[in-house]
C-alpha cells in the first residue's frame, strides 16, 4: 500500500480517525496530568520530613549525585545497621531489610519463632529498581499500595524476603538474662537500621525545581532552634503569654551578627520585665552566633531577620 492509498483510505474514514485522535488526546492528557501530580508529591514531602538539627543537611544535595536522578533515594534501601539481636532470635532467618515501599502488611519479624526457614530463595524483588525509576508512583499513595497489595495477595513471608545483598552469618542461639528487656521488646528490630547513620539519604544534586519556599521555612526553623538554645528567661508569672519583644537582626554572609540587634518594640504588662526580656533576647542572639549553617546562596533572605521573642510556652 502506498502512502497515497493510505491517505485516500483515511479520507474515506474521517469519522473513525477523528474519534481515535480525540480518544488518544483525552487519554494522553489524563495520563500526563495524573502523573505530573504524583511526581511532585515526594518532593513536597522532603522538606517536612526533617529533624530540627539537620534541616539544612536534609535539603542539601550531594555534589556527586547524578543529575538525571533528581528523586530522593528510598530511605530503606541499602546498608542497614547491624541489629543487636539479643538471642540470635532465629537461625538462618536473617532479619530482613525492609524494602523501599511502605509495607502495608504486618511484619512477621515480631514472631520469628513461628517462621519456618524458607529453603527456596524467592525471586528478587523489584522494589529497589522501581524505587529508583519511578519512586513517585510507588510510595506516594499508601492506600493505593495497600489495595494493590491486597489484590495480589502476596504471602506475608514474601514481603519480607528482600534478599539482602550479603546475608549475615547465622548467629548462634543464646540466652542472655541481662537482655530480657530486649527480648520483650516486640518492636521491629530493623527500626534502628531504618534510622540509619546517614541523615542525608537524598543522593541527588538537590531538587531541580528549587523549592525556595520550603528552603526558607527550613532555615528559619534551624535558626530559631539555634537562637532558642541560648534564650533562657526566668519568669514565673501567670501572664507570660502577654510578653513579646520585637528585635531586628542583621547578619553577615558568614552568619555572624553584623550589628547590635535592635529592639523595635516591647509589649507586656510590666515594662521592666519586657526590657529584661529584650536584653536577654539580644544577648541570646549574640551568644549563639555565628549561624554558619544558613544557606549562603540565600543570603538575601536572611541578611535581615525580624524576630519576636515571647514567653508563650512558659505556663
Amino acid at each position: 500500500m502506498t502512502a497515497k492509498d493510505l491517505i485516500r483510505k483515511l479520507r474515506e474514514r474521517k469519522g473513525t480517525v477523528l474519534s481515535v485522535t480525540l480518544h488518544v488526546l483525552v487519554l494522553g492528557w489524563g495520563l500526563v496530568s495524573f502523573s505530573a501530580r504524583s511526581l511532585e508529591a515526594p518532593e513536597d514531602v522532603i522538606p517536612v520530613d526533617i529533624s530540627m538539627d539537620d534541616t539544612s543537611k536534609m535539603m542539601q544535595g550531594i555534589k556527586t549525585g547524578k543529575k538525571e536522578n533528581p528523586k530522593p533515594l528510598a530511605d530503606k534501601i541499602g546498608e542497614t545497621k547491624p541489629i543487636d539481636d539479643a538471642v540470635g532470635k532465629i537461625d538462618r532467618k536473617e532479619v530482613v531489610t525492609s524494602t523501599s515501599a511502605p509495607d502495608p502488611t504486618p511484619k512477621p519479624v515480631e514472631k520469628p519463632i513461628e517462621k519456618k526457614p524458607d529453603p527456596k530463595p524467592e525471586p528478587k524483588k523489584e522494589e529497589p529498581k522501581q524505587a529508583e525509576k519511578k519512586p513517585d508512583q510507588k510510595a506516594d499513595d499508601p492506600i493505593a499500595d495497600a489495595l494493590k497489595a491486597d489484590a495480589k495477595k502476596p504471602p506475608p513471608k514474601q514481603e519480607t524476603k528482600a534478599a539482602p545483598p550479603q546475608p549475615p552469618k547465622p548467629k548462634e542461639r543464646t540466652f542472655d538474662q541481662s537482655k530480657i528487656a530486649a527480648l520483650l521488646d516486640k518492636r521491629d528490630p530493623s527500626r534502628q537500621a531504618v534510622a540509619g547513620e546517614t541523615l542525608n539519604s537524598n543522593a541527588a544534586l538537590g531538587t531541580p525545581t528549587g523549592h525556595a519556599n520550603a528552603l526558607v521555612a527550613t532555615w528559619k526553623g534551624a535558626f530559631v532552634s539555634a537562637v532558642r538554645r541560648c534564650f533562657n528567661f526566668p519568669y514565673n508569672g501567670t501572664d507570660a503569654d502577654q510578653f513579646e519583644v520585637d528585635i531586628d537582626i542583621q547578619l553577615r554572609p558568614d552568619g555572624s551578627v553584623a550589628s547590635d540587634p535592635v529592639i523595635v518594640a516591647t509589649r507586656g504588662p510590666s515594662s521592666s520585665v519586657s526590657r529584661a526580656l529584650a536584653e536577654s533576647a539580644k544577648r541570646a542572639v549574640v551568644q549563639c552566633q555565628a549561624y554558619a549553617f544558613l544557606p549562603k546562596n540565600q543570603y538575601d533572605t536572611w541578611k535581615y531577620i525580624p524576630m519576636t521573642f515571647g514567653l508563650k510556652d512558659m505556663l
Binding site: 519576636t308 521573642f309 514567653l311
Partner: peptide
C-alpha cells in the same frame, strides 16, 4: 508574629 513575617522564639528553658 502579628502577621509581619517575624520569626517567633520562645525560651528554651525557664531556669
Amino acid at each position: 508574629a502579628r502577621g509581619q513575617g517575624r520569626l517567633q522564639v520562645n525560651p528554651g528553658e525557664s531556669q
